[in-house]
Amino acid sequence: MYELNITRPETLADAVEALGHDEAMALGGGQTLIPTLKQRLANPETLVSLTGIAELSGISRDGDMLIIGGTTTHAEVASGATDYPALAALAGGIGDPAVRNRGTIGGSLANDDPAACYPAAVLASGATIVTNTREIAADDFFEGMFTTALHDGEIITAVRFPIPQKANYQKFDQPASRFALVGVFVAQTADGVRVAVTGASEEGVFRWTDAEAALSADFSPTAVDGLNVSADNLIGDLHGTPEYRAHLVKVMTKRAVAASG
């Protein structure tokens, strides 16, 4: 790790001010950022820890919406998002207890790892990312591997999830990291079905619109039988070819539909 300073503001305003300086970086749970720093792959002058800001943490209900504060940990979502069981289950399947007790939803979304779990939930739910300056619809937020619509210094303060009628997340573990080799989140709402896929694409999380149409017409596992996912632009690596991932997208979608409750 290069030498750096760390500040722990207690208000959002102080955090925004601290992040206004060049070479400052937000620190959530540190589960991605700290290993990156240890390997000297990033060199911020100052880390602005967000986890001391009370207003950024916690889970609340607002009508049909479940609102999760930006620094809420995966463990808190796993145990506290009882109104949205599929989301709670997803959070409970991230990493291991140490990761879940430190890692935050804001950190995961800002990082936008192509194999991360939350992006699938956010995109399939049609959630809204709330920052210190604006609100961003899920469809506009993810811009490819490790890139989002966030500006420098912008802080995710909360995520607003409309609670679907039925939903489920199926994650097929990459054997080493146990991130998603392929993860599929299916959400059925009054407006139809959304299917978001993580882990598979070179371009990050994406919606499988053919499946959405088929499942909106008939919400059953067999509805996607006739569909195929193209392997173009899917990830090929040590753990699976693009063709294998394309196949898994379909398998996991069917399983998610079958398990939706």
Partner: peptide
């Protein structure tokens, strides 16, 4: 080395 950490080397 493609499997240079526990992210890719499966124990």
């Amino acid at each position: 080395l493609l499997s240079a950490s526990f992210m890719d080397y499966a124990m």
